[in-house]
Nucleic acid binder design. Structure first.
Lengths: 167, 167
DNA sequence: AGTAATTTTCAGAAACTTTTGAAAGTTTAG
DNA sequence: CTAAACTTTCAAAAGTTTCTGAAAATTACT
C-alpha cells in the first residue's frame, strides 16, 4: 500500500469510527487529517484536502473545539486561523468519554433520580419497575464514578497495572 | 410523579440513551418496555404500548435479538411469540460493549493493520502518519484486550475491587 | 388440502441529519 | 473610514435513517 492510499484509508476509517461515537463523519475526518498532519492547518487547506464546503469546515471545526479535541492557534502577523489536534490518544479518549458522559449518561441519571419519587404502589408492574430502575441507577452511578477515576489515572497506570490486575 | 408518568419518562430516556449507543430509538424503547415488564410480551402488545407499526416492531425485535439483549420465548399451546429482555444490567452492558467492539473497533484495527505495510519514506508527513497510526494501533489493541477481560470479570468483582483499586 | 393466525418483507413516505454556498458579519491594517 | 481578508450564519438541497402498512410468506390446526 502506498503512503497516499494509506493516508486516505486511515481518514476514511477514522471517519466511520467517529460516526458511531457521536462525532459525525466530517468532524472525524478533519480530526484524522489534523492528527496525521505535522503542522497545524488552515480552514482553506482542510476544505481542499477533504473536498468540503466552507460552511461545513467551519461548523465541524467549531464542534471539534467544543469537544475539546482540536484547538485554534494564532500565528503572530497572520490573519488566518490555524487548527491542530490533540495527538495524545489517551487524552483524546478521556476527553471524548467525558463529553459523552455529560451528553448521554447525565440525562439518564437525572431521569432516574426523578423516577425515584414515584410513590409506592401494589402490583407486580410497580415492583418490577422499581427494581429495574434502581438497578440501573446504581449501575449508572458506578459507571459515572469510574469515568471520574479513569480521567484522573494516567495512561501508563492504565495500560500497565490495570491489565495486569485483570489477569 | 405518578407511576404511569415515571414509566413513560424512563422509556423515553432509555430511548434517547440508546440512540447514542448504536441502538436506535425504537429498539431502545422496546428494550426499556421489556425491562420493566414483569412478563414477556407479544409483538401486538409492544406495538400498542409504543404506538409503532408491525413492521417496525418486528424489525426492531429482531435487531435486539441480534444484539443478544432480548430473547424469544415459546409458550406451549400458543402460536404467538413472546419476548423478554435480559434484566441483569451488567450482562446487558457487557453484551452491548461486545457488539460495539465487533462492529466499530474491529474495522479500525483492520485498517490500521493494513496501513502498517506502507513502505518507509522520507519527510515529516510520513513520520507523523506513522507515529500517529502506530500510537492508535497500540491503544486500540489495549482497549480490545480490556474488553475481553471485562467480559470475563463479574459484576461484583468489577464494582467492588476495581473501584477500590482506582482510589 | 384449506384456512386462519402470525410473522416477515419491502417499497415508498416521513423524519432527521448533514452539507452546501452565498450573503452577512467581523476584524485588522493602512 | 475603507477595503481586504477572513469567519460565521442560515435557508435550502442532498443524503441517510427510520417507520409504515399492505402484501407475501410461513406456520399450525382441522
Amino acid at each position: 500500500m502506498e503512503f497516499e492510499e494509506g493516508r486516505e484509508k486511515f481518514i476514511q476509517a477514522w471517519g466511520t469510527l467517529g460516526s458511531s461515537w457521536g462525532i459525525n463523519r466530517t468532524m472525524a475526518q478533519i480530526q484524522a487529517l489534523l492528527l496525521i498532519s505535522p503542522e497545524s492547518m488552515t480552514t482553506e487547506s482542510i476544505m481542499e484536502e477533504l473536498n468540503i464546503s466552507r460552511g461545513n469546515a467551519n461548523m465541524s471545526l467549531r464542534a471539534l473545539m467544543d469537544w475539546g479535541v482540536v484547538f485554534k492557534e494564532n500565528r503572530p502577523g497572520e490573519r488566518k486561523d490555524y487548527f491542530y489536534a490533540e495527538k495524545d490518544i489517551w487524552k483524546v479518549a478521556v476527553q471524548v468519554t467525558r463529553e459523552r458522559r455529560r451528553r448521554e449518561l447525565e440525562p439518564l441519571i437525572r431521569v432516574l433520580g426523578q423516577v425515584e419519587s414515584v410513590p409506592q404502589e401494589d402490583g407486580e408492574e410497580y415492583q418490577e419497575f422499581k427494581k429495574v430502575t434502581e438497578d440501573i441507577s446504581k449501575f449508572a452511578d458506578k459507571v459515572d464514578g469510574l469515568f471520574d477515576k479513569l480521567a484522573k489515572a494516567d495512561e501508563h497506570w492504565f495500560v500497565g497495572n490495570f491489565l495486569k490486575l485483570l489477569r
